[in-house]
Amino acid sequence: MSDDGPRGQVGKDSFEARLKSAREKQGLDPKASDPDKRLSAPSAMGVGMRVGVELVSAMVVAVAIGWALDRWLHTSPAFLVVFVLLGFGAGLANLWRVMGPGRMPGAK
């Protein structure tokens, strides 16, 4: 009885640890949070691609709206000019939103 004490203790610990980890893996027990689940920092090419896409798409929308308004109101090129400026601003706003502090989802 006295000599199988320590051995029994080790066996109990390892079984307990394995049971606990198994339960955590199944989401049955609250898990110690793992903060390292975010994506790693995007590559330079990904960032460049992203900047380009955001700026271009905002500009596409802005130009389309400006052009349509000009055509409708016969004010060419007043709205186009205004909306190109707004489009640039919107592109920057997009970039701020997706790459600014706080949020950094998928790369590229």
Binding site: V53, E54, V56, A58, V61, A90, A93
Partner: peptide, 25 residues
């Protein structure tokens, strides 16, 4: 007058950027 159009453009540019990114790649 500046922020609202910018936000609208930014909102409308989402599908554009989504489609351009995939298409361009």
């Amino acid at each position: 007058p500046i922020i609202v159009p910018v936000e609208i453009i930014s909102y409308l540019s989402r599908p554009v950027s989504l489609s351009i990114r995939l298409f361009a790649n």
